[in-house]
């Protein structure tokens, strides 16, 4: 009887397979072809042109620096937030809700919010002038102040992207039964030891997912950078955008897209290796 119906599972996943094939795999293959072909013949010309570009090295350096600066801070903040909210009884939901508001704001809007704070006539300068710290408006986002610009972009990215890490971490923390922490406490572990020796190892799956997701998103950073720094702070996706729209060169844009995908995949593999999740060692 069941033999007659063996095609049903395949039928059930058919829509999603078709959806994926149409909207993900086909464009992916097209992009790869676009990147590695020239006038319909395979060619490394686009990749070569990409690498020869003046902004190529800078954009790679900026993207990596930003990722290295932003992701660990976001993880640390998310862990602190998750640990804090775990101790809250009433009002926990409200706090979580407020904390996740940045999730609902588009990255361009977030960039514009920070622009209104940090631009020459922005709130930050007004505050500093009002307090008498500055005598005249300072510029934070120009090419002459690369450190301040980097710092501003990093802060804006941290503000915008920490919530998703926190959501994953909180979900992970909720999976850890209270008894583990209580047992550790009974047997003499202080709060710090409990966190390092009990909580962190037990939320490895959440840490892994959060890091992968957040790092891949960090490599794709664009709108916040564009709003705050414009072309003063080239990043990989920004370059892809410029080649696509300003230069109308779809081949080089595709080469950037493929490069970003390779970096993201590599980062994911590294995390999968580095933070091994052994189901045997989970609650």
């Amino acid at each position: 009887m069941t033999n007659n119906r063996s095609w049903i599972p395949y039928l059930l996943i058919l829509p999603s397979v078709a959806f994926l094939a149409l909207l993900f795999i086909v464009p992916l293959l097209q992009t790869i072809w676009l990147a590695f072909s020239d006038n319909g013949v395979p060619s490394p010309a686009n990749a070569q042109r990409m690498m020869a570009d003046i902004n190529f090295t800078r954009s790679i350096k900026n993207t990596f620096l930003l990722t290295i600066a932003v992701v660990p801070v976001q993880l640390a903040i998310a862990l602190v937030m998750g640990t804090m909210v775990a101790k809250v009884g009433r009002g926990r939901e409200t706090i979580l809700w407020v904390w996740t508001i940045p999730l609902g704001i588009s990255d361009l809007a977030a960039g514009l919010v920070w622009l209104s704070i940090l631009q020459n006539s922005g709130y930050f300068n007004s505050l500093l002038l009002g307090l008498g710290v500055l005598e005249r408006q300072a510029s934070w986002l120009s090419y002459q102040t690369p450190v301040a610009l980097f710092f501003a972009i990093a802060v804006a990215e941290i503000w915008r992207g920490t919530a998703i890490v926190m959501v994953i971490i909180v979900a992970g923390l909720n999976q850890v039964p209270r008894e583990f922490k209580e047992a550790a406490e009974i047997f003499g572990a202080g709060a710090w030891t409990r966190f390092w020796r009990i909580t962190l190892p037990l939320i490895r799956p959440a840490l892994q997912s959060a890091l992968i997701l957040r790092t891949v998103l960090a490599f794709e950073v664009f709108a916040v950078v564009y709003a705050l720094g414009g072309r003063n702070f080239p990043v990989l996706v920004g370059e892809a955008y410029n080649w696509q729209n300003q230069n109308q060169n779809y081949g080089v844009a595709a080469a950037y897209a493929v490069l970003i995908m390779i970096i993201s995949l590599a980062a994911t593999l590294i995390y999968l290796k580095a933070i091994k999740v052994d189901p045997e060692r989970l609650p």
């Binding site: 039964p177 583990f180 209580e182 047992a183 009990i198 037990l202 045997e280 060692r281 989970l282 609650p283």
Partner: peptide, 14 residues
Amino acid sequence: GLAMVFQNYAVFPH
């Protein structure tokens, strides 16, 4: 100066 045994054991899985 005490030790405790929990209902669901609370033996650390990792």
